Amino acid sequence: MSGKPVLHYVSVRGRMEPVKWLLAAAGVEFEEKFVETKEDLQKLRAGGSLLFQQIPMVEIDGMKLVQTRAILNYIAGKYNLYGKDLKERALIDMYVEGLADLNELIMYHDFKPANEKEKNLASIFDKAMNRYLPVFEKVLKDHGQDFLVGNKLSRADVNLLETILVLEEFKPDALAKFPVLQSFKARMCSMPNIKKFLQPGSPKKPPLQEKEIPALLAIFE
Rank of each mutant, 00 (worst) to 15 (best):
G98L: 05
G98Y: 02
G98A: 04
L99M: 15
L99W: 07
L102N: 03
L102W: 06
N103I: 09
N103K: 12
E104A: 14
E104K: 14
E104Q: 14
I106C: 05
I106F: 02
M107E: 12
H109C: 00
D110W: 15
F111P: 02
P113F: 04
A114V: 14
N115V: 11
N115P: 03
K117S: 06
K119M: 12
K119T: 15
K119F: 11
K119E: 14
L121F: 10
A122K: 14
A122C: 02
I124P: 02
D126N: 13
A128T: 07
M129G: 08
R131I: 13
Y132R: 03
P134H: 08
P134Q: 11
P134A: 09
V135A: 10
F136M: 09
V139T: 11
D142C: 08
F147C: 08
L148D: 02
V149S: 01
G150A: 10
G150P: 06
K152F: 12
K152Y: 14
K152L: 11
L153S: 04
S154L: 08
R155E: 12
A156N: 07
D157N: 08
D157S: 09
V158I: 15
V158F: 06
N159K: 13
L160P: 05
L160Q: 03
L161W: 02
L161F: 02
L161Q: 01
I164C: 01
I164E: 05
L165S: 05
L167N: 01
E168K: 15
F170W: 10
F170S: 10
K171I: 04
P172C: 01
P172W: 07
D173T: 14
K177N: 15
P179R: 10
P179T: 04
L181S: 10
L181K: 02
F184M: 08
M188Y: 04
C189W: 04
S190A: 15
M191A: 09
P192C: 03
P192V: 10
P192N: 05
I194K: 05
K195S: 13
K196C: 02
L198H: 01
Q199L: 10
P200C: 03
S202E: 03
P203R: 07
P203N: 09
K204P: 00
K205D: 00
P206K: 00
P207F: 09
L208D: 00
E210H: 11
E212K: 02
